[in-house]
């Protein structure tokens, strides 16, 4: 297993000034996976990411990238990584191209052609020779992605990557990430507070709270888990009927609203039954489970943005 893993975190701990920021995080990422890392502010996301790329040394535990330990074999481990940590800070007094050349000079595997390709990939070809100080946040974000993918890393780490992108830019960015993951075979590690972003982009999501990963889930699983909401005049009776005829556990949400997971049961038959039993059905709709529901559920309504 560990041979194929792109990233492996084993019992990762970090204590800063006596405060436990990260408490025993375990994670394994496989090739071509888009992984989402979700958590409220101060949950330890950025600290975890900084430990992955070696900016911070773990108090305990280890980070292994493509089989190389970051602590013991930093150069080999980091050869497989491209990243943006928090904001895409570039040298503002250099042009976009000069910035890219700075980082290309640090890795001899990057060719001139690759730099050109990457600039086009992120759509910066018209502004790349302007000083970064004249860039908007969105453009700096694109430049940040360009420097991160330049070396064709196996693992791409993006900390809050869609900050400052407009809606069109976000869609474009999402497509780019998918392309990188599925065509270039990169494993992408995205941390974000934008739940919808993660939901639309990622295959697997881990939710971190107060330094521990509290749940790791497959995004497809939650999305297919459809729920139905009914508005009826006699909710107790409706719940009893659902239990009796279809063995469905329903819950009462509001005064007249009940909700249940149908799991393959026919909605039309259920509604027919309700009407036959004299229940006044005023409203019925399917409601897709979102990551947000789960997230809020798990983090108990903590501030997330």
């Amino acid at each position: 297993m560990s041979n194929t893993a792109v990233l492996e975190l084993t019992d990762l701990w970090k204590t800063i000034k006596g405060k436990e920021i990260v408490k025993g995080v375990n994670l394994t990422l496989y090739p071509s996976q888009i992984f989402g890392f979700l958590g409220p502010n101060g949950a330890g996301k950025t600290t975890t990411i900084r430990m992955i790329v070696g900016l911070i040394k773990p108090t305990k535990g280890s980070v292994t990238i493509c089989g190389h330990s970051v602590a013991h074999d930093f150069v080999k481990a980091l050869s497989n990584v491209g990243c943006i940590i928090e904001s895409p800070d570039m040298y503002k007094y250099l042009t976009g191209m000069e910035n890219l050349l700075q980082f290309a000079a640090m890795d001899k595997t990057i060719s001139q052609q690759r730099i050109k390709d990457v600039v086009e990939m992120v759509g910066l070809q018209h502004r790349v020779n302007d000083k970064v100080s004249t860039y908007s946040l969105g453009m700096r974000q694109r430049l940040g992605i360009a420097q991160a993918i330049m070396s064709k890393p196996k693992l791409l780490i993006l900390d809050e990557p869609t900050n400052g992108l407009d809606p069109a830019g976000m869609t474009e960015f999402r497509n780019l990430i998918r392309k990188l993951a599925y065509e270039e075979g990169m494993t992408v590690f995205v941390s974000s507070h934008l739940l919808l972003e993660i939901q639309q982009m990622c295959d697997v999501v881990s939710i971190i709270k107060q330094g521990s990963v509290i749940k790791t889930i497959n995004v497809q699983d939650i999305l297919h888990d459809d729920r139905i909401e009914w508005q009826v005049d006699d909710p107790e009776n409706a719940i009893a009927l659902l239990k009796k005829h279809w063995n469905i556990e329903a819950v009462q949400l509001k005064k007249n609203t009940i909700s249940a997971n149908l799991s393959q049961n026919p909605l039309d038959k259920i509604n027919e039954l309700f009407i036959r039993e004299g229940i006044a059905l005023t409203y019925c709709s399917t409601k897709q489970n979102t990551l947000e529901d789960l997230f809020l559920d798990l983090t108990e309504g903590d501030e997330i943005v």
């Binding site: 790329v53 070696g54 900016l55 930093f74 150069v75 080999k76 980091l78 050869s79 990584v81 990243c83 940590i85 928090e86 904001s87 800070d89 570039m90 040298y91 503002k92 980082f103 640090m106 890795d107 420097q147």
Partner: peptide
């Protein structure tokens, strides 16, 4: 202070 140190220290250079 400009944050570029992060970009410099996550390369495959010790």
């Amino acid at each position: 202070s400009s944050g570029t140190i992060k970009l410099l220290l996550v390369r495959n250079v010790p």
